[in-house]
């Protein structure tokens, strides 16, 4: 006699449910990726695209200091943005968690979420006005704090980081907040009962147990920063060239091999981030 098996329908149901997602992935990700790889090995000569295998674009990308600077700047923008988002976001998540009144919690949550509700173009122009040499921040610095001349806050790295931090904040706050709400409140009581004050309780109990949320938020923020295009182009003022901008420029020049290689570089960076943070996550989880 054959051993009993689960009916076919039951064992295959998950795969049927995954089918739509598979189809979308195949059409919108796998297929373009193949095209992408194909273009990356095309030859580009004097503004013309030639269907001839070559690794020249890769070689150029990896050896030319110009591209090194772009990769470095991309990582720099993403790192500083992530650092700032975490530094602002963790205390914010903590506050959201500790606020007692439900109404205050709702409003605070809405305010943290609000940057996502505003269009990226509008938000970027808004920041341009706020951060300009004649803007309110510089007015405050000069008139109230007595700075001799305006501080350049926009059309450079600072502006890009400020604006990116602003919009990615919710992506950092909510994962952290969610790990905090899942924290057993008696753990903090237990720590205090054993003689720990607020700071020791935070350092030895709350923080280590919310680290997975912090890492998840940081990962999202970092990958999103890597791919940001509009903000660096509007607030960077041409001085901050990141990979997405380079891809855009190369595409406009019909230098598709260079655009494809830039895109692949971006993809590899994102994948490395995911792998690295998954490693850290596994380490930080209980």
């Amino acid at each position: 006699m054959q051993p009993a098996r689960a009916p076919f329908r039951r064992s295959s149901a998950p795969w049927f449910l995954l089918l739509p997602a598979f189809l979308v992935m195949a059409y919108a990700f796998v297929l373009p990726m193949l095209v992408f790889f194909r273009y990356s090995v095309y030859t580009y000569e004097r503004g013309k695209l030639i269907d001839e295998f070559s690794l020249d674009t890769y070689r150029e990308f990896l050896t030319d200091p110009y591209f090194h600077t772009i990769i470095f700047d991309t990582l720099k923008v993403a790192s500083i943005t992530t650092l700032c988002s975490v530094l602002v976001g963790y205390p914010l998540a903590y506050a959201l968690w500790r606020v007692k009144s439900a109404a205050a919690k709702r409003w605070l949550g809405l305010i943290i979420f609000s940057p996502i509700l505003v269009s990226v173009v509008v938000r970027s122009y808004g920041w341009t006005v706020l951060l300009a040499d004649q803007g309110p921040i510089n007015w405050f610095l000069q008139m109230v704090l007595g700075f001799p001349e305006p501080i350049r806050l926009v059309f450079n790295l600072t502006g890009v980081v400020i604006s990116l931090t602003h919009v990615f904040l919710p992506f950092v706050v909510f994962p952290i907040y969610s790990t905090m709400t899942r924290l057993d409140p008696t753990l903090r009581e237990a720590a205090m009962d054993l003689g720990a004050g607020w700071w020791t309780t935070f350092r030895r109990v709350t923080f280590p147990l919310t680290l997975p949320g912090l890492l998840a938020g940081a990962q999202i923020c970092f990958t999103l920063s890597l791919g940001a295009f509009v903000t660096p182009s509007l607030l960077g003022g041409g001085r901050v060239i990141v990979l997405p901008l380079q891809v855009f420029t190369a595409t406009s020049d019909i230098n598709w091999p260079l655009a494809a290689v830039g895109g692949i570089a971006l993809l590899i960076l994102a994948m490395l981030t995911v792998i690295l943070s998954n490693r850290l996550l596994r380490f930080s989880e209980v």
């Binding site: 057993d184 008696t186 753990l187 009581e189 237990a190 720590a191 205090m192 009962d193 054993l194 003689g195 720990a196 004050g197 030895r204 109990v205 280590p208 147990l209 209980v286």
Partner: peptide, 20 residues
């Protein structure tokens, strides 16, 4: 006198062990 300064210690209902 706050909890951390009292000469008492507590065994909690669900024990509240630090999972990490």
């Amino acid at each position: 006198v706050p909890a951390y300064a009292r000469p008492t210690n507590m065994v909690f209902q669900r024990w509240a062990l630090f999972p990490h």
